[in-house]
């Protein structure tokens, strides 16, 4: 066992973990952060995306021991990190309003990847959004509304919200 100290969604944790424990399993099984899901388990689908020291990573392809000394943000931590307790993060809100999901399994990863993209590129073009979230797969193939949700969130976060009508959400 190896001891690790991590901050997850603003809380500090010290745990002894087996070195082979993947970060996603540590989050789900040790900390109960089941908002982060395991999709493909082969680094392809991105459903398990979290932020490690502010950068998006696939938590099924990181050992928990590698997160020692790091700050982890999961889908469960994005709303309060926005400063207004309980309020949805603008990207969560946009996915809700634009119906950026069908079965919803890819959604936590899609939202974490989108937040990471918008941090680096606050007003991405449609192509930049599609390329920016290429590490995330939606097996319902619901990409149109996912892209529209990211566009709406980008608008809202930069202070010029685009309405659902102009973006043409399809519910």
């Amino acid at each position: 066992m190896t001891s690790i100290n991590v901050r997850v969604d603003g809380m500090s944790y010290s745990d002894d973990v087996e070195p082979r424990t993947l970060l996603v399993h540590y989050l789900r099984e040790t900390l109960g952060k089941v908002g982060t899901v395991v999709g493909c388990d082969t680094s392809n689908c991105g459903a398990c995306t979290v932020h490690l020291d502010g950068e998006s990573v696939k938590s099924c392809t990181v050992f928990a021991v590698q997160a020692d000394g790091c700050e982890v943000t999961t889908i469960e931590g994005v709303s309060s990190s926005d400063g207004t307790d309980g309020a949805l993060h603008p990207v969560q809100k946009a996915f809700h309003e634009m119906h950026g999901l069908q079965c919803g399994f890819c959604t936590p990863g899609m939202i974490m990847a989108s937040i990471d993209l918008l941090k680096e590129n606050p007003s991405p073009s449609e192509t930049e959004i599609r390329e920016g979230i290429e590490g995330n797969l939606c097996r319902c193939t619901g990409y149109q509304n996912i892209v529209r949700a990211v566009q709406q969130a980008a608008g809202e976060m930069s202070g010029s919200p685009a309405g659902a009508d102009t973006l043409g959400a399809q519910a």
Partner: peptide
Amino acid sequence: VADRQVRHR
């Protein structure tokens, strides 16, 4: 190379 998440690690 790969995607953003992979390029971060």
